[in-house]
Structure formats: C-alpha cells, structure tokens
Computed example of a mutant assay.
Amino acid sequence: MRVAIAGAGAVGRSIAGELLENGHEVLLIDKNPNSISVERVPLAEWLLADACEITSLDEAALQRCHVVIAATGDDKVNLVVSLLAKTEYGVPRVVARVNNPKNEWLYNESWGVDVAVSTPRLMSALVEEAVSVGDLVRLMRFSQGNANLVELTLAADTALVGTRVGDVAWPVDTALVTIIRAGRVLVPGGSDTLEAGDELLFVAAQEREEELETLLAG
C-alpha cells in the first residue's frame, strides 16, 4: 500500500515509521526545509513541497496513493489537503488530524475526510473509557456514513447481562464489532453471552447512540 503523509513533523514521522515497519510505501511531504530529516526516516520517500498546491501533489503522484494522511499542525492545511486528495486525485482513503477540537465539525465528507483523528478528543475519551461503566464513550468519528466508534463497559446491574448477542434487538445502523473480556479480544457471535464488565465496541450511526446507550443501560 502506498501512503502519502502531508506534514513531516513529529506526528508525521512517527506515523511513517509505523507504516514502514508494516511493509508499506510512504511519502512524506513538507514545505519546511527544517522538517526534511531524511536520516530520521531513511526508508521513506521525501518531498520538499507545499501539499496545498496542485503542482506539488502532481509531483507526488497522489493518484497512485491508496491513502493520504493530512498530519500537519494546521487544521486549514489538513482540510485543503484532504479535499484535494479526494476530489482531484480520487484517493480512496483520507485520514486527517484535528488539532483544534472546535474545528472537528468541518472534518467530514464535504472536505474529503474519511476519518478524522482528534488527539484531544481521543485522550479524553480514553480517560472516560477507563473510569466509566454503563456510559457510552465516543472514541472516533468516521465521516463516511456519519458513523462513530463507541465503547461501553457493561454494568453488572443491566438487564442484558446473561443475554445472548443474537437475542438483543440492536438499533438499526449499529454493529457490535468486538467484545473485550478479561484481556481477550472476542469476535462476537450470535450465541455468545454478554457478561458484566464486558467492554463492547460498536460502530454506530450518530443518531443511534442515545438509543444504544438506553438499551445497554437496561
């Protein structure tokens, strides 16, 4: 898989390193000469250019990329890169970094964003996830289909404890994708029984979150 990363700062370089270790091709793009540190990620391709310029993206051959990651520290730049990647080059998957949570509402399909990653929101969600039982916690938003990755730790007093997954009338546009139980990751089947303390991860339409939380609260 070929991945282009706009922004070669600490975040962009870290992402590049992980992707390279997993066997992917990576191109790092940055307009700041001080950010071009080939020795830090020697296996990556590097391009000194403005990722908001069509000529730069032509040089980067963005049409050959399977994924574009807009990882700069500027939300305006990340949105422009996302929009160009999706509309001008038809990149199948665009992931964008949200720096200011107040701008998160802009990161949607209108700007070409498939997945928006907000570090402040993710960190606060992980704190909530660690201390909350019985409350639905939003971990990540997927722009496609207006869906979110949400988590809930099943309380001991909910009526769903002891119920088989296949017997639960889950809301429409909602999918239980994983159960984390005693340190194990389980792929839920219809015959699996819900237990107190289960961490349930769902992909759910945003408008179904309240209905899902009510159901899980019993």
Rank of each mutant, 00 (worst) to 15 (best):
R181H: 10
V98G: 05
E209Q: 14
R138S: 11
R97F: 04
G23S: 12
V95S: 00
K31N: 11
N148P: 08
A85V: 11
M140H: 01
K86M: 13
G23C: 12
L194N: 01
L79K: 04
G197A: 11
S110N: 14
F142D: 06
D30W: 08
D58L: 14
D114W: 08
G145T: 06
L48T: 15
I180A: 07
P33K: 15
V68F: 05
S191C: 11
L122V: 11
S132A: 13
N34T: 10
V3N: 02
A217G: 12
T87I: 09
V77I: 15
L122A: 14
L84N: 06
I180F: 15
N34D: 06
G9E: 08
Q63D: 06
G9Q: 02
V98T: 09
G166H: 07
S191P: 12
S37R: 10
V185T: 14
P171Y: 14
A4W: 01
E21I: 06
C65G: 01
A4E: 04
I29P: 00
A71S: 15
A8M: 09
Q63S: 10
R208I: 12
F142T: 10
L47V: 06
H24K: 15
I36F: 02
N108H: 05
A175C: 15
G23D: 11
A16Y: 00
E210R: 15
A169F: 13
D30Y: 13
R2P: 04
I5S: 03
V94P: 04
L139F: 11
R13Y: 05
R13H: 10
E25G: 10
V68A: 03
L28P: 04
V161N: 04
K31G: 12
I5A: 05
E210T: 14
L216A: 05
L106K: 01
L201G: 04
P171G: 14
G17H: 01
L19H: 00
T72Q: 07
A70N: 03
D173S: 13
A125G: 09
G73N: 06
L201P: 07
E210W: 12
A70L: 01
A147Q: 13
P120N: 15
A175V: 15
D157V: 12
T158E: 09
M123T: 13
E39P: 00
P120E: 15
V131P: 07
M140P: 00
A8Q: 04
Q206M: 14
A96Q: 03
T163P: 02
S110Q: 10
E129G: 03
V117D: 03
L20S: 07
V3F: 03
K86P: 00
T158S: 11
R164G: 04
A116W: 01
A10Y: 11
D135H: 08
N78D: 09
N108Y: 05
I29V: 06
G145I: 02
L57S: 01
A155S: 11
